Computed example of a mutant assay.
Amino acid sequence: MKLSPQNSPPSDAAERRSIRPVVCYPIDNLPAFDSALYGRARQELTLIHEVFVQPRDAATFEVPSGHFFRIVCSDGSQVGDLNLWNANDLGERFFSGKTRALHGTHVSVGDRLWSNLPHLRPMATITQDTLDWYGWDGDGGSVHDVIGTRCDPYTNKLLNGTDYHHCCHSNFTRALAAKTGLALDEAEKHVHDVLNVFMCTGFTADTHQYFMKASPARTGDYLEFFAEMDLLGALSACPGGDCGTSHSSEEARCFPLRVEVYKAKAEALAGLPMSALPAYSGSHGV
């Protein structure tokens, strides 16, 4: 929370504040989301795999390039934290900061999840969102944010003075270690900032602090993606439940989540980009 201003506003304060904002990263030159193309691709999908994520825990899943996957509220209103890696290279992973800079604080249909530098490729494209009706509420909140980092035991210790090991960060660490055989301290280095699926968040109007409120998700709601590359994912069923009261606790009512992986007909995938965007060479002008 910021302190009260210590300096009086200058005579031209109103003029300075009224300067027109400029979007930092206009995306007009990116390939547009072709809803008809993705719509045809998803007309005949075959469920090939399911992963169930228990409350206050995480699980990994794999999605081959050209497949669809859904994160489903299977039993009640529940927030999930998502990590994504290139299945063939853990060094390439979801970059929430650049995704936020390109698509805004909250994502939905047509937005892409981008990978970290020096790769900067679309990892997955959002193709369906049963909560797209929510939009922006009166508090400035919306769903599926790329603002929050993930709940973690370090911040919990800092703010509450207690140890709590069902935070999403710890859940990811254990799940990735179990999947890869990495030691916990090595697996932890690959855990990264998340897409907060189903979470309703924003910034307060007065102090501009990050807030959460009860998720509008209900049983049957889902967020669907198209995998632009071979993906290894990890999903944590947040210990805050619907995040209406607490971020990390044993008191919040929590539900499981489900990940569904779907295969499309090969002929239906014709024309889909699958990470065909040009990449920077990495020469840095040298």
Score class of each variant (00 low, 15 high):
79 V>R: 00
79 V>A: 03
80 G>H: 02
80 G>Q: 05
80 G>Y: 06
81 D>I: 11
81 D>M: 10
82 L>E: 06
83 N>F: 08
83 N>V: 13
83 N>L: 11
83 N>A: 11
83 N>G: 04
84 L>E: 03
84 L>W: 12
84 L>K: 14
84 L>H: 09
84 L>R: 06
84 L>N: 04
84 L>F: 14
85 W>A: 13
85 W>Y: 11
85 W>P: 02
85 W>T: 12
85 W>K: 14
86 N>I: 10
86 N>E: 01
86 N>G: 12
86 N>A: 14
86 N>Y: 01
87 A>T: 13
87 A>R: 14
87 A>W: 02
87 A>V: 08
88 N>A: 06
88 N>T: 13
88 N>S: 08
88 N>V: 14
89 D>M: 13
89 D>A: 12
89 D>F: 08
89 D>H: 09
90 L>P: 01
90 L>G: 02
90 L>R: 05
90 L>F: 06
91 G>H: 07
91 G>P: 00
92 E>M: 09
92 E>Y: 04
92 E>K: 12
92 E>L: 07
93 R>N: 05
93 R>V: 12
94 F>S: 02
94 F>A: 05
94 F>D: 02
94 F>W: 02
95 F>I: 06
95 F>W: 07
95 F>C: 14
95 F>P: 00
96 S>F: 10
96 S>C: 11
97 G>H: 06
97 G>P: 02
97 G>V: 14
98 K>C: 10
98 K>T: 10
98 K>S: 11
98 K>Q: 09
98 K>D: 01
98 K>I: 15
98 K>A: 14
98 K>E: 03
99 T>S: 10
100 R>G: 09
100 R>N: 07
100 R>M: 14
100 R>W: 10
101 A>S: 07
102 L>R: 00
102 L>D: 06
102 L>Q: 05
102 L>T: 10
103 H>I: 13
103 H>G: 08
103 H>C: 10
103 H>L: 08
103 H>V: 13
103 H>N: 07
104 G>C: 11
104 G>Q: 04
105 T>D: 04
106 H>M: 15
106 H>C: 14
107 V>G: 00
107 V>L: 09
108 S>N: 01
109 V>G: 01
110 G>I: 06
110 G>L: 08
110 G>A: 07
111 D>Y: 04
111 D>W: 03
111 D>N: 11
111 D>S: 11
112 R>E: 04
113 L>Q: 02
113 L>W: 03
113 L>S: 03
